[in-house]
C-alpha cells in the first residue's frame, strides 16, 4: 500500500514574525516542518513497523525552501518525496485540487494531512482533499489502526471522541496525541541523502488556478488596557466583575 503524507513548512514556533508593508516578512525566520505533519509521517512509519507493507511518499506543495522539511521527513523515515515547487500562494481548495491529482498519480490509498496548519491556522486542506478525491476522511485523529482494507480511527468530536471504521482509500487528518514523533537519527539523515526527492510543477497536476488572491497581510496585535482596580478586595472584585461583564462582555 502506498501512503502519502502531505507536509508543509512553517516558521519555527519561537520565531518573532514581523510585517513589512502589507506583507508578512519572513526573512531571517527559521522554518521547520509543521508539527502536525510530523504526526502523519510518524504514523505511516508505525504502520510499517506494525507489519504493513507500505511505501511512504512525502508530498509537498510550496516554495523551494520546503525542501528542508521534505528532507526532514526522509530522514525520519519517508521512502521518497515529491515536491511540487511553486511560489504561488494557493488557497486550501486549489491546493487540494493539485494535491488530489498527485495523490491519484501516486496511486496512494491512505493520505495523512496535518489537522491544522501552524502558520495560518487553517484546518481546511484535509477535508477539501477528501472532497476532491471523493474519499471518506477522519478529522483530528488520535488513534489509528489498519484492519484489512479499512482503517479504524478514533477522533475528537465536540463532546468527546468517537471511533469509526472507514474503507480505504481515505484521508486522515492528524493532531497531537496520535503519536510521539521520533527524532531522525544521524545514520538515517545520511541515508536520506540517497532517497529520491522528485521535483514537479503544479502544471504537471492540472495546475488549478488559485480561487482567492491575497491582497494584504497583517498581524493581530494585542494591546493591554493597563487598568488597575483600587479599594479593598470586595470593591476591586466588584469593579473587575463589572468590567468583565460590561466592557469586555465576557461574562
Amino acid at each position: 500500500m502506498k501512503i502519502c503524507t502531505i507536509l508543509k513548512q512553517v516558521p519555527d514556533a519561537e520565531a518573532s514574525i514581523r510585517t513589512s508593508g502589507d506583507r508578512v516578512d519572513l526573512s531571517g525566520v527559521t522554518f521547520v516542518m509543521d508539527g502536525m505533519d510530523e504526526y502523519g509521517v510518524e504514523e505511516a512509519i508505525r504502520l510499517r513497523e506494525g507489519g504493513a507493507q507500505v511505501e511512504i511518499v512525502a508530498l509537498a506543495l510550496g516554495p523551494k525552501r520546503f525542501e528542508d522539511a521534505i528532507r526532514t521527513s526522509l530522514a525520519i523515515g519517508a521512502d521518497r518525496a515529491v515536491h511540487i515547487e511553486t511560489d504561488e500562494t494557493y488557497d486550501a481548495i486549489s491546493q487540494a485540487r493539485i494535491l488530489a491529482e498527485a495523490v491519484k498519480k501516486e496511486g496512494a490509498e491512505l493520505v495523512f494531512v496535518g489537522g491544522k496548519e501552524a502558520d495560518w491556522d487553517s484546518a481546511a486542506l484535509g477535508p477539501a482533499l477528501a472532497e476532491v478525491l471523493g474519499w471518506p476522511h477522519v478529522d483530528w485523529t488520535t488513534k489509528l489502526a489498519l484492519s484489512g482494507a479499512a482503517v479504524e480511527a478514533t477522533h475528537d468530536t465536540d463532546s468527546g471522541t468517537e471511533t469509526v471504521k472507514v474503507a480505504l482509500p481515505a484521508v486522515i487528518t492528524t493532531q497531537q496525541g496520535l503519536n510521539e514523533p521520533r527524532y531522525p537519527t544521524l545514520p538515517n539523515i545520511m541515508k536520506a541523502k540517497r532517497k529520491e526527492l522528485r521535483k514537479a510543477q503544479p502544471a504537471d497536476y492540472g495546475a488549478a488556478t488559485a480561487l482567492t488572491r491575497l491582497t494584504g497581510e497583517a498581524i493581530q496585535v494585542k494591546t493591554r488596557l493597563n487598568k488597575l482596580f483600587s479599594g479593598d478586595a470586595v470593591e476591586s472584585a466588584t469593579a473587575l466583575v463589572n468590567a468583565l461583564r460590561n466592557e469586555a462582555k465576557v461574562l
Binding site: 528542508d68 528532507r71 530522514a75 531522525p184 539523515i189
Partner: peptide, 9 residues
Amino acid sequence: PEQKEIQRL
C-alpha cells in the same frame, strides 16, 4: 542539506 538536518536534530 545533511548538515542542516544534523544541526536541526
